[in-house]
Amino acid sequence: MNILDKERKLQVLEKNISDLGDSESVSKLVEEVEKFKKNEMTKLSSWDKVLLARHPKRPKSRDFIDYLSKDFIEFHGDRLFGDDKSIIGGIGSIDGIVFTIIAQQKGNTVEENIKRNFGMPHPEGYRKALRLMKQAEKFNRPILTLIDTPGAYPGLGAEERGQGFAIAENLKEMSRLTVPVIAVVIGEGGSGGALALGFANEVLMLENAIYSILSPEGYASIVWKDSSKAPLAAEQMKITAADLKDFDIIDEIILEPFGGAHFNPELTFEKTKKCIMDTYYHLSGLARTELQYQRNAKVRNFGFLQRFNYDNLKEVRK
């Protein structure tokens, strides 16, 4: 039983209770619900987290922005080709400090999802992001990016307009930025499409978010030629916040309320806000060049490898 089934069961149970009104069996049912909540809903496998990260009711970037910044002004377009609706960019103040906010947006409804291309950006989206980042640097404004995408869009137009080139350019320029960059993975962090906004001084991640090199389905279909083995792939790929914290790829985990972010969005937003501001105050103590250095030094250490000790080489050769 995965988390979505559990959620459905919980709803049925709670509905049963409210239908019954007052009776003896109610207290029994209440007990059952509490037990179910405590024992079952808190046990999450990696696959459960994948499902939660993609949950249709999960708060999207726009909801986060609306809570974080009451005065957000959106800026459109990359000044080259067009406006990509799957990336929202603009400026807004959080706790009195003006941030440039760049976020990947999925839709809450089917129509919005189609409009937002299911959160899969085209090259113009990344170029818009880069334009806004450069603008932020000009005005010495911190940058906040919210990551929630299945990946960069693999389509004809995207290839024609240089998807790979746009992402590469973003990575190169982000390594040179001299303002604080904070990235928050709020849902799915899919592949290069997520990293193109995720090259930051500090990377925060919601508890039930995922960050991976490709989707578990894609992994399963490549390794086992069977995409239905995705749950197994999710386990093997180590894509949850806790795993990534172990690897030191991310810096902070933002805990979610019981049942996931959509059970109590307000609380999630509040915790996220607090974490962002803590990180910001921590980073604002660094000078411009130090910020640049810190970001690059962090990324320089990523990797899992070993090297011969040359002094022992002779012994090894024998």
Partner: peptide, 8 residues
């Protein structure tokens, strides 16, 4: 994820 980070 380590491979992904090599891009950065």
């Amino acid at each position: 994820i380590f491979s992904l980070m090599q891009m950065a």
